[in-house]
Design a protein around this nucleic acid. Sequence first.
DNA 1: CACTCGTATATACACCTGTATAGTTCGTTT
DNA 2: AAACGAACTATACAGGTGTATATACGAGTG
Lengths: 258, 258
Amino acid sequence: MQMYIYLFIQPCIQLRHASLVYVGGCEGVVVGREMNSVDSGLAGSGAPERADAADGRRKAQVTAQDLMDAAVDLLESHRSVSSLSLREIARAVGIAPNTFYRHFRDVDELAVALIDQAGRSLRGVIREARQRLSLERSAIRTSVEAFMEQLDSEDRYVHILLREMSIGSDAFREAVDRELTYFEDELRDELERIVQATGQPTLEPALVAKAITRLVFAMGAAADGKSVERRAEMTEQTIVMIKMIMEGAQSLARKGAS
Amino acid sequence: MQMYIYLFIQPCIQLRHASLVYVGGCEGVVVGREMNSVDSGLAGSGAPERADAADGRRKAQVTAQDLMDAAVDLLESHRSVSSLSLREIARAVGIAPNTFYRHFRDVDELAVALIDQAGRSLRGVIREARQRLSLERSAIRTSVEAFMEQLDSEDRYVHILLREMSIGSDAFREAVDRELTYFEDELRDELERIVQATGQPTLEPALVAKAITRLVFAMGAAADGKSVERRAEMTEQTIVMIKMIMEGAQSLARKGAS
DNA sequence: CACTCGTATATACACCTGTATAGTTCGTTT
DNA sequence: AAACGAACTATACAGGTGTATATACGAGTG
């Protein structure tokens, strides 16, 4: 009976002397720490005040976008978006864990939204780069370089796309696949424009677009994290690879026609 | 002051009445469940008894290979090898969590070993398929089909390689990259043999090999989890893509020579 | 036999996780 | 002014995680 009581009492003692930092409500301390990160979180994050001022209807203290931004910021040290914990994100943005549910049902749902945003952003970058120089000759180079430059951009959107390509069972891969398809479609249109402009027939532009897209993303994924020189080298390699594909498609089209 | 004391006492009370299950060994209950899964683990896994009987020197109860096998088995529902927990693997193989450390320092170390094994296995499959039919014409088709067939093989080695390609920060990607390089090297040798046999010069065989390898893996990753028909379609697409690359390399070589 | 030593286990600890429940704050509506 | 309801917090719980420490078993050599 003595022993029995001891067993019940002991954890209390241990908890007590270990917890001058911890006690105050089991999670009270954690809350304390989370309140600390409220400050840094709100200060470091985007612009929650703007949303506050713009939308007069409610306080609208934290937006879904804030959560996504925090997740991206948090991502640099971690591996995959879905490996972030709900609490981690909430802590970074300075809200109680449960508030997360107001904006997303899951971390996975946030991840899908993030993939969407990443794809849109990256497509914008490429499109912009492509518009800047419309000569067929260095269109490839311009696009590939624009893509590769995004690898050490401040916003880590590309990394998300690259990393999430082959992970996450269900709606995840679909989301990335959807984004890749958008890239392919834009590239196919571009290819068909080139065909019309130069008169060079090309075998199956859709397939060429797919091959190029997948290849660029694969090379990008491989180049990610490598040194600047190594990455420049891989950029050149990618450009040659793309030229091979396009030359092959045109050559096969010629052979098929003759 | 009353409040202060209250704060210190309260968690003790809460812990106490919450812990009729918890106190008296904190993990005692869990251990009970883990012992249950010992049985199912040993029965479900490969053949630990064989190792026991064959190696008379020691009990040799659990080998590193057993751990790796268990991890692979466990992987089908999970996403990435590194997302498996040490305890999960130990539970599956029927050992105490700490015993894991006898074989690997980390789950990541196991993952690297697994990637190694997966690469070796897959290269074996492709090499074997390539040897079966040595005519240049359908060498591509044979290899690609062999690769794609591995996607629903019983041993999930390919999936590991595909999934781990773009995840895990440090030694991880290196491991996968190393395996991909082996593939590239073998393919480059093959390409150079073809060049010598057919007399068709090819631009930068190493780069062609790299492009093809990356493309096949990218398409494989995209095809993984898709339906059989969808996968067959993607196999055909991949074959055409490869032919484009090779035709392009040869065409560019001709143009460069002339 | 006793001894050591490699191998595996048992227990514990401190921490983190998602989520349930209840409560607080505060703008909007009646 | 009172009630409502949205946004958010506080607390707690029941689990899971990696790892430290101590212990047990069982073969090999003295």
